[in-house]
């Protein structure tokens, strides 16, 4: 009886121990999933033809959308401007800013040609924030360390900042926005997005 109890408790203990790493492994796994998805779209020969360009873009966009938290990015970039915005203004900004970031990301990804991605490590705190560190090795053999900052929402981890060699995307935008009036920056943002 007592052996049985021991077995049962061992079983529970083991499942618990085995479950823990998979829980902790979430953000990196999810980033990897998204990255793999994008790489497979980019490398898909069937989508390479010019008439498929739109479809290809749409698919990449969809994959990126699933993993990026545009609202959090907007909030952190706007900083002091954010609080003074109405709900509609916030929504508008999130939409356009998301489009701009998406495009910037897309242009980088489109030039992808066999770069290697190494998944280094991840850290997660108890408050729903995490860090995923990867390294991109370009075909020129240059190593680029990239750090994703992620926030938990439900079961998913969503990227709210990307740092490339220490250069944070969101910090960079925040510093630029700091000295601009909101009116000017939203106007410029819309013009930028329309440029495409």
């Amino acid at each position: 009886m007592s052996i049985n109890l021991f077995r049962v408790s061992l079983f529970f203990f083991l499942t618990l121990v085995m479950a823990l790493p998979s829980l902790a492994g979430q953000p990196m796994e999810q980033i990897r999933e998204t990255t793999d998805k994008i790489i497979s779209i980019v490398g898909d020969q069937a989508l390479k033809s010019p008439e498929k360009a739109k479809e290809r873009k749409r698919l990449i966009r969809q994959a990126v959308d699933e993993r990026f938290d545009w609202e959090e990015m907007s909030r952190r970039s706007l900083a002091r401007h954010w609080k003074r915005r109405t709900e509609d203004e916030k929504k508008e900004f999130i939409y356009f800013f998301g489009k701009l970031l998406e495009r910037t990301y897309l242009e980088q990804v489109e030039n992808y040609s066999g770069e290697k991605v190494l998944y280094l490590n991840e850290t997660v705190d108890g408050k729903g924030f995490g860090d995923v560190r990867i390294k991109i090795i370009t075909k020129q053999e240059t190593e680029i360390p990239v750090r994703y900052k992620v926030k938990k929402n439900g079961d998913g981890w969503y990227v709210y900042d990307i740092s490339v060699e220490g250069r944070s995307l969101i910090n960079n935008y925040r510093k630029q926005f700091q000295r601009m009036s909101y009116k000017k920056l939203i106007k410029q943002l819309k013009a930028k997005v329309a440029q495409e």
Binding site: R75, R76, A79, R80, W82, K83, K149, I170
Partner: peptide, 8 residues
């Protein structure tokens, strides 16, 4: 008031 969205 100001730094609500500051970097985590």
């Amino acid at each position: 008031e100001v730094s609500e969205p500051s970097a985590h």
